[in-house]
Design a protein around this nucleic acid. Sequence first.
DNA 1: TGGCTCACG
DNA 2: ACGTACGTGAGCCAG
Length: 962
Amino acid sequence: MTDTAANQPHKLFLLDAFALIYRAHFAFSKNPRVNSKGLNTGAILGFTNTLVEVLQKEKPTHIGVAFDAQKKTFRHEQFADYKAQRQAMPEDIGLAIPYIKKIIKAFNIPILVVDGFEADDVIGTLARRAEAQGFGEVFMMTPDKDYCQLVTDCVKIYRPAFMGNAAEVLDVAHVLQRFEIERPEQVIDILGLQGDASDNIPGIPGIGEKTAKTLIQKYGSVENLIANVDELKGKQQENVRNFAEQGLMSKELATIHLDVPIEFEADKLVLDKPNEDELRQLFDDLEFRQLAARVLGGGSAAGVSSTAAPTPRGARRPKVTEGQGSLFGSSSDAAVASGAEEGETGSFGAPAGPRLTLADVPHQYHLIDSPELRKSLLEFLLQQTEVSFDTETTGLDTMTARLVGLSFCWLPGEAYYVPVPHDDHAAAQALIDEFRPFFDAKGTLKIGQNIKYDLTILRHYQVEVEGPLFDTMLAHYLLEPDMRHNMDVLAETYLHYTPVSIISLIGPKGKNQKTMADLPPAEVSDYACEDADVTLQLKHVFEPLLKEVGLLDLLNEVENPLVPVLSAIEYEGVKIDSGAMGEYSAELQGYIQEIEQQIFTAAGQEFNIGSPKQLGEILFDKLGLGGGKIKKTKTGQYATGEEVLSVLAADNPVAGLILEHRQLTKLRSTYVEALPQLVCELDGRVHTSFNQAVTATGRLSSTNPNLQNIPIRTEKGREIRKAFVPRDENHVLLAADYSQVELRIMADFSGDKTMIEAFRQGLDIHTSTASKVFHVPLAEVDGEMRRKAKTVNFGIIYGISAFGLAQRIGISRKEATEIIDTYFQEFSSVKQFMDDSINKARELEYATTLLGRRRYLRDINSRNATLRGYTERNAINAPIQGTAADIIKKAMINIHDWLLQEKLGTKMILQVHDELVFDAVREEIEYITPKIKELMATALLLPHGVPLEVEVGTGRNWLQAH
DNA sequence: TGGCTCACG
DNA sequence: ACGTACGTGAGCCAG
């Protein structure tokens, strides 16, 4: 009976199953978890983790999990379109549900379903009835904001931890603040007015979040608003009048019903002990080892299925997709609990579990530590057609790291580790030289994970590794461009194997962290061998997958051959004139202080100009700028971005001063101060890292420092380029730029006669566009028209919108629409191309470049208009931006090969998306200039034959070279 | 750590 | 009606 509820600190948790499941599924969508049977377990793991977390942390006394009824609910009958827009449940979720129900049952937690009602009605009703019975605390566990209408002093929302956010309890105060209302029930009125796109609740046209809040603050409810519709003005009045019925219906739909025919019987919801055997079986089937250890106690999970026989040595490479598990034994006894299992969102704390070592799986890893053994290893290496190798070093910075060891593997499960005497450079060099024949061997495929790192390390020992190469990181990048390509995760996902973590060897990050050099070779050996082994096995998984989707050529002809090119570029580095930087820093400092004083005087006080928060308060609260309409950021702060301040600058000079201050401090801290600090002491140059596996489109990115965003657009910024100089008097910088590559690609892909003709004639493309769009002869295009046309041209590549164009050139949306319409009349094939790109992407759910590189566009058919729009613009832009990336990558490979082949001293030192920079030997300039132009222009031929043009310049610094 | 702002193509 | 141009990386502030 329920009489015990009244006076004890009872704590009831009611979970909204579907809401939590959808969210969990989404959380794993970036790196899906698939077990060896091919089941996507993300939703199951996420949901179960949330459940376990709440059980362990919150210790509820009572609990229940509510599911939506399978049949139609009363809402469908009331309103035919209800949830009609919602996509069908993803297949993975449908498959996950039975498992989740089984898990809930194994926990002995009741499942609550009432025919004709949704989970929120069930939960709402139970919460109300629990409160009426004097129950202590009720938590509705859900990420769904509709529940805000139900919150009382006793009933709260519990939003579980998610994507790094801590769990959060929402009480009455939170709700009132968030919706700016007086009573929680008014949440329904807000939702009734503004609607809810995901549930297809229409609301009233023209009313969004802000208007809804304002109107409810004034009128209190939808009904009262309608009653006083006469007070409203213009279009708004019309809308409220015409859609009054729809508003009331929307309110009704948003209302959670509290009269579901279900009793609240506290004793049926008392938290019971789980059925451990059932849970163990389920976790075992699902391969949730970490979770099993956490819920059922350490070690127990690993012991369950240890009877599985190790895979015999002869049985190589069972296919993962067939659910066989990996070479390292059946997946259930090989992969033991490890910190990595729970994914990398960080939201699921992973306490240290029992960890088996490699000793528990079949492998033969050998330490090769004598001249005789090395000789013998080399002989074997030279007989192989493909070998994976890995370097162990003292750190991640290629400039300072020393080699500690080399590992090699050519048969799965069998690897060799060669320690390198890292404290004696001559001895290390001698040992590496022993293996030179292998690195020089042109017939041997060298396989590595992020092999650029290994190449650069070896380059410091004068070893230039000969291709062909195969990088598993890049292989995965082509397969799944928007995921991470960390080897441990790849091993988990594709081999169902958990590699030894590096932390277990060198300790956690901190000042006591060891390096590989601090450990005896015997301890490093297994780790190093395992890396080479896993890499080899990943290659064998990825290669057929790539072949299947037609990406193997792109990998073998572009990405892999680019690796040594980038390694060489990074190794060379760029010389920085630190003295010039120092002088410029002082000069900037002078300007900054001057402006600072002016700002303080204008503000009447000193404050931190760099703090958007303080700045906003000064500008808007103290000085009262902005005249009424003040933009805020989504976190509720005043927006103080460039856009806002440049508008304000018309009213008050302070805004302009702040913009100038921003610009100067940015230049100082990001470039002038930071760059000299990154100059390598050994050679006086900065060595950036080019990341080949981060962008969604196929471009490179540059970090540490980022040399792809060195200022050029403003005069004071441009100065910085003067400090990028050639290595010595005998060199100059040579910069080669593609002119308008992306527009040329679009002209070619669309086959637009007008635009192609303009490029063929060598016209200035923006002037030519202006002439067409504004209907004036070429000669009469003025600067303003050209500027606008240029913005339009860029806009086209990005998937133009009238709003965006209007914003950027400061015209009305109507004018922007007219310009775009005219543009599409004049360049009708371009319009056709954009439509085709979207339609093709709708069908395939990805877009491709000229070389077949893919960008997945899984939201292209989303019902969410904003998301869909964003994805549609990607469908237009990705092939263009990505093809430009394909082209310059090809050019880099060809130029690098040519420079080597001709034994020239000129070095490629930078790539900036459409530009290559060289440290050029003076005497070579005449010879190389036309060749570089030619190699860039012909790296790839566009299908319709639109020519690519390249501009080359030279100078004593990067600025002059342009 | 995430949000904001701003540097580049 | 909705919200609004594509792709990056870094420094600073605030919690």
